[in-house]
Design a protein around this nucleic acid. Structure first.
Lengths: 239, 239
DNA sequence: CGGACAATTGAAGCCGGTCAAAACTGGTGG
DNA sequence: CCACCAGTTTTGACCGGCTTCAATTGTCCG
């Protein structure tokens, strides 16, 4: 049985520092010179599902959601990227069209590294290949977790898990405690539930003292409580 | 909007022929010599979540399910492997414990290639690195699809999609038409629903003429009908 | 101040999970 | 060859979690 830490952590995802760390100084300089930095306003789309990958993106600051939109308006958010994370390399490596879209949920500075430059370095650096293979391999754990959670857990449990993940992920960044500031709809789209259901559950969690709803943000106060709600062990409290 | 073909196909997954095709004759021989073939009886477990990867597996014949078990007995199947597919390389590459388990759902011949031998070849072959990167990149599309489906689609829609995928995947293998022969419980665990719900839905699909329930197997007759039920475009028939 | 959008609350109803029991299946041994 | 048993599939009934629709309140800005 996987530990809670393993279960929740998303330290699995590729970060820029890892990406660069194995490269020679020249290679690093080469990539940096090739990069183009662009400011994306909140809600601006970075790439769109079905689009052709032309490079990879690197989040300098801000936050980005990866999501899949259905024609009826609903969208499912599969991941949130913060500072230091890379975007769009799966489709590039797989030589496919983007399977999902990415959009800024805050004003963000994002650097674009063109495909040719990235692949050129990749072809010459076995270190980079290995870094990528390791990173991709790790990411599967995340996906398996997501799938299991969506398929077997209640909305309440999924919300608890989502809050724990967000708290863990943005804790270090925020300084004193983490602010989770997403719209209710976005949070609902992460959890995979309706906005109204999400609101009611948040209410309950606040009443139970697990979280605090400050202006524009949710703060986790009682992780233990959320862990209990999340039912991580998988056993349903048989009555 | 992704095409149906893209949406459903699982030609994304790494196959042995691809794995070997870029290698030199010596490398191929080296791996073959290192491999140990073993017969697994139906229901036998190949590896277990939380276990330490010691190599990769290759399905010579038979079928294998990848799944995650919860303590309460439910399990979620994330993938079915058929002849020619590889198993267990994600965790090995990611240097992690297995996030899920694998078990034979039919008597299967499976070859095990030890970690050392596999990694030795990988370290010396940039072709293999690239093949793996490409394969892993492609697989993400599958996972994104799974997540979106589980999060936004009804059990009925998910069953339709699952049947289409199974039909497409095992069509070529079966010769004349594909036999989907899983227990109801296993099919339910793929779809992410209760066995009873699955049975009722199958009933309806049979009555509607989409499928036929022959002895021990389900046969898809009307793919178009299933596609309609699957609501692939994403628009909910607003009444 | 007012208009637009986000968040919240309320009420109704269905989908799907759960429990229980019946029908069916295949395999075993007398 | 049949009776019996264990496991699987199916059917029935119930009910609770969530979705949906609708309406109200709250909030931010021009």
């Amino acid at each position: 049985m996987p530990t809670q830490k393993l279960f929740l952590s998303d330290q699995f995802r590729l970060r820029t520092d890892q990406l660069f760390e194995g490269l020679t100084i020249e290679e690093q300089e080469y990539l940096r010179a090739a990069g183009v930095t662009h400011l994306y306003k909140k809600t601006e789309i970075i790439f769109r599902e079905g689009g052709i990958p032309t490079g990879i993106f690197y989040v300098e600051s801000g936050r980005v959601k990866k999501y899949r939109a259905s024609a009826n308006g609903t969208e499912q958010i599969s991941y949130l990227c913060g500072k230091g994370e890379l975007l769009g390399y799966h489709a590039l490596l797989g030589e496919e069209l983007y399977p999902d879209s990415a959009a800024a949920i805050e004003d963000s500075r994002i650097t674009f590294i063109p495909k040719v430059n990235f692949l050129k370095v990749l072809r010459n650096s076995s270190v980079l290949s290995n870094t990528l293979l390791k990173a991709l391999g790790k990411e599967f754990t995340l996906f398996i977790n997501s799938i299991t959670n969506l398929a077997t857990k209640s909305a309440r449990e999924r919300l608890a898990i989502t809050l724990l993940i967000l708290d863990e992920k943005f804790h270090t960044e925020g300084g004193n405690g983490s602010n989770i500031s997403l719209s209710r709809t976005e949070l609902a789209n992460m959890v995979g539930t309706a906005t109204e259901t999400l609101v009611r559950l948040l209410q309950e969690f606040a009443k139970a003292g697990y979280i605090q709803k400050t202006e524009k943000a949710i703060r986790v106060i009682d992780r233990k409580g959320l862990v209990r709600e999340a039912n991580l062990s998988g056993l349903k409290t048989k009555k």
